[in-house]
């Protein structure tokens, strides 16, 4: 009924919504097109299709004829950076998944004094502007005498990733009653057995979803990493930042496209698990 009354505006709304989606995706599509454009001087003018920017990114010889050799990247450097990023993202998201899930179980299944304080505290790292958390961690690590390294980046990421995992797992626990857990306990299973055999399988989609989203947020983090990475440690986003600051070159497009594709695949899997019902 009300739908019909609004139908005059419905077409306009469709156009508006489509324009919104174009706004979201056009810039990403643009980089993708640029990354295959052989024009090294002006990306905005199409001169032909090439894989050269991807090839030179990995140290391969460009296939194109007219090519400035200075554009070739050092592949070892990129692989080292990629390795750093994966170590950080895997460790930080694994640790955060354990901590976030444990916290979610505590607030969902137990009553304790200070529960609301914990719940409020868990929101704090997510609402704190990145730059504030980044410099606070920098002052702390330097003050305590921690050498800035991959380890400090992993710790820094855990502080905010745990909250993301907590929220995803807590949401799953909230939508689930505890009948099966009670039954398991009544049948004589200890808390560990009940957790392993009953609770964990039930919350598994939330845990996997939380892990994947934490992984991709860690992999993409720029600001906090920027402050606590130290001078000789670089992650992929910091590598891209340094590339862009040296000047815009076509290889940046190629690397950006690879990173977007990877993020989209992992994030899609994460969103799928998060929304999956039993």
């Amino acid at each position: 009924m009300s739908k019909r009354r609004f139908s005059s505006g419905w077409t306009a709304l469709h156009i508006y919504g489509a324009a919104f989606l174009i706004f979201l995706y056009a810039p990403l599509a643009l980089i993708t097109v640029y990354s295959f454009n052989s024009n090294a001087l002006n990306m905005a003018v199409w001169t032909g299709f090439t894989f050269d920017w991807y090839r030179t990114l990995f140290g391969m010889q460009p296939a194109g004829a007219a090519f400035d050799a200075a554009f070739t990247e050092n592949p070892d450097r990129l692989l080292g950076v990629l390795r750093n990023s994966l170590i950080v993202a895997l460790s930080a998201s694994a640790i955060s998944t354990v901590i976030g899930t444990a916290t979610a179980l505590a607030t969902a299944r137990y009553d304790f004094i200070g529960k609301r304080i914990y719940q409020a505290l868990l929101f704090m790292p997510m609402i704190m502007p990145d730059i504030v958390l980044g410099i606070a961690l920098l002052i702390f690590f330097v003050g305590v005498g921690f050498k800035l390294s991959l380890a400090t980046i992993i710790i820094g990421h855990c502080t905010f990733l745990s909250s993301y995992v907590y929220i995803i797992v807590a949401a799953r626990l909230a939508g689930m009653d505890n009948t099966l857990e009670v039954a398991s306990a009544d049948l004589g299973a200890g808390p560990v057995t009940t957790f392993r055999r009953v609770t964990l399988p039930l919350i598994m989609p939330g845990v996997i979803g939380g892990f994947l989203l934490a992984f991709i947020i860690s992999l993409d983090d720029v600001v906090i990493t920027y402050f606590i990475a130290g001078v000789d440690t670089q992650t992929l986003p910091l590598f891209i930042l340094a590339m862009v600051r040296r000047g815009i070159r076509p290889q940046i497009n190629a690397l950006a496209v690879l990173l977007i594709m990877f993020s989209f695949v992992v994030a899609s899997a994460g969103l799928y698990f998060r929304s999956r019902r039993n």
């Binding site: 989606l21 993409d220 720029v222 986003p237 930042l241 815009i248 950006a256 989209f264 994030a267």
Partner: peptide
Amino acid sequence: ITLPFFANLLVRIYAWLL
């Protein structure tokens, strides 16, 4: 609508530079 959020922040800003 959710997906672009997971594309790297730098890349998304860099796109506007281009």
